[in-house]
Simulated assay, not measured.
Amino acid sequence: MATRFCTSCGAPIQPGKKFCARCGAPVADASPAPDATIAQATAPAGAPTSQAKQKLGTGTIVAIVAAVLLALALVLLVAWSASGNALPWQARDGQAREVAGEKSEAAKSKEDRKKAAEAKRKAEEAKAKAEEKAEEKAEEEAERKAEATAQAQRDAEKSATDAQFKAQILPYYNRLSDYDSRIASCATTFNTIYLSTDFNKRYAAAQECYALEQSIQSDATSFSSIQVPEGSSYATQHAAVMRCLNDLQSRIACISNAWTTDLVYEDPAPYKEEILRPIADGKDPNTGKVIALQDYQEVYPTIKF
């Protein structure tokens, strides 16, 4: 294998080496010296040729110059560093750290701005929700007040309507007790004289009964035409008064019908059973009591105003 020499200083390169052992230059461009091979072939063993000696001298000079330059560079670097200046690679590292720091600060600032924007957004959302809730509450309060006002108006109207309705039915209620007493008086008179041969007396009693029946019928007809307001507090009282008026009509009708049969005869005694049939028909067959009277006595006490 041919010997390779450094192209920088001319020193021989050991096989397999990539850098010059003398000057440290890379040996990529190093190439074998053909003349040296020829010289070695013709020269006596162990005797250096003139070209080799020349290259060796040149290489020595180059190596010395390189060493001086290297030493000078080291002195300059030391002096540069001693003066407080950063070395080139240190400057690069410092610049890199500065850039990294700037990037870190920029990233932190960006993150801070992002957090601030997010916090602002949440605050605005919370404010909007609070305002919306306040508006809803205000609307609900307004609706509640409006409903309360409307309800108060409805209550006032209902109260006025009920007062008017009560004023309509109260007179009829007040006459129930009087009608009941007068029917009882008519019944007593009937039982006393219905078999009498004194026609005039029986006739006078019958006319009194007819007049009472007409009054009760008139009240019942008039009362039934009264309209019950929807939801009225006096609807129950109205129904009870109507029921009592119907009971009074039934009771007086029994006596009135009995008088009508009675007045047919000058001497009613032989026709007693026929005369009393209307009254008997109005009685409960099990108890023997007048059905309408029993119902009246149950309902009337329940009517309260």
Rank of each mutant, 00 (worst) to 15 (best):
residue 103 K to M: 09
residue 291 I to Q: 10
residue 161 T to W: 04
residue 302 T to S: 09
residue 255 I to H: 06
residue 14 Q to A: 12
residue 70 L to Q: 14
residue 8 S to N: 04
residue 139 E to A: 14
residue 226 I to E: 05
residue 263 L to N: 02
residue 109 S to D: 13
residue 11 A to W: 08
residue 192 T to P: 03
residue 297 Q to A: 10
residue 156 A to S: 03
residue 115 K to S: 12
residue 205 A to K: 01
residue 126 A to V: 12
residue 65 V to R: 11
residue 104 S to R: 15
residue 287 T to R: 09
residue 243 R to F: 10
residue 271 Y to A: 07
residue 126 A to R: 15
residue 168 Q to A: 08
residue 215 S to N: 13
residue 226 I to G: 00
residue 16 G to W: 08
residue 153 Q to M: 06
residue 120 K to S: 13
residue 56 L to F: 12
residue 9 C to F: 01
residue 60 T to H: 08
residue 126 A to P: 11
residue 220 A to E: 06
residue 110 K to M: 10
residue 234 Y to T: 00
residue 237 Q to L: 03
residue 297 Q to E: 14
residue 287 T to W: 07
residue 271 Y to F: 12
residue 49 T to Y: 00
residue 183 I to V: 11
residue 70 L to A: 12
residue 187 A to F: 15
residue 242 M to W: 14
residue 299 V to D: 00
residue 78 V to C: 05
residue 86 A to G: 07
residue 12 P to E: 06
residue 55 K to M: 14
residue 131 E to R: 09
residue 89 W to N: 14
residue 128 A to P: 00
residue 249 Q to F: 15
residue 96 A to N: 12
residue 107 A to M: 11
residue 34 P to M: 14
residue 198 D to N: 07
residue 75 V to S: 00
residue 160 A to Y: 07
residue 258 A to C: 00
residue 42 T to Y: 15
residue 139 E to M: 13
residue 195 L to R: 15
residue 204 A to I: 09
residue 270 P to I: 02
residue 35 D to R: 10
residue 138 A to C: 02
residue 44 P to Q: 09
residue 74 L to V: 12
residue 197 T to P: 03
residue 114 K to S: 12
residue 176 L to I: 11
residue 44 P to A: 14
residue 247 D to A: 02
residue 144 R to K: 09
residue 93 D to I: 07
residue 82 A to V: 03
residue 271 Y to T: 02
residue 3 T to W: 04
residue 296 Y to S: 02
residue 41 A to C: 04
residue 61 I to P: 00
residue 98 E to L: 12
residue 224 S to N: 12
residue 146 A to H: 06
residue 122 K to A: 01
residue 96 A to R: 15
residue 280 A to V: 13
residue 67 A to G: 05
residue 60 T to G: 09
residue 235 A to Q: 08
residue 196 S to N: 00
residue 107 A to C: 06
residue 234 Y to F: 09
residue 159 S to Q: 11
residue 185 S to P: 05
residue 6 C to V: 01
residue 232 S to N: 11
residue 135 E to A: 14
residue 15 P to M: 13
residue 33 A to K: 09
residue 263 L to Q: 05
residue 94 G to V: 10
residue 134 A to P: 01
residue 78 V to Q: 05
residue 216 I to L: 02
residue 304 K to W: 04
residue 280 A to K: 13
residue 287 T to M: 10
residue 282 G to N: 07
residue 36 A to M: 15
residue 34 P to H: 15
residue 19 F to K: 06
residue 68 V to H: 05
residue 152 A to N: 13
residue 13 I to E: 13
residue 4 R to Q: 12
residue 271 Y to Q: 08
residue 248 L to S: 06
residue 197 T to H: 01
residue 147 E to H: 02
residue 125 E to K: 04
residue 216 I to R: 05
residue 21 A to E: 05
residue 12 P to G: 08
residue 297 Q to C: 07
residue 99 V to C: 02
residue 86 A to N: 09
residue 230 E to K: 13
residue 116 A to R: 06
residue 24 G to P: 03
residue 30 A to Y: 06
residue 6 C to Q: 02
residue 243 R to L: 08
residue 225 S to M: 05
residue 237 Q to T: 05
residue 108 K to A: 08
residue 254 C to M: 15
residue 129 K to R: 14
residue 153 Q to S: 08
residue 45 A to N: 03
residue 169 I to E: 03
residue 236 T to I: 10
residue 111 E to P: 07
residue 278 P to Q: 03
residue 36 A to F: 13
residue 70 L to K: 13
residue 122 K to F: 06
residue 64 I to F: 11
residue 143 E to N: 14
residue 52 A to E: 12
residue 50 S to V: 10
residue 70 L to G: 14
residue 260 T to M: 11
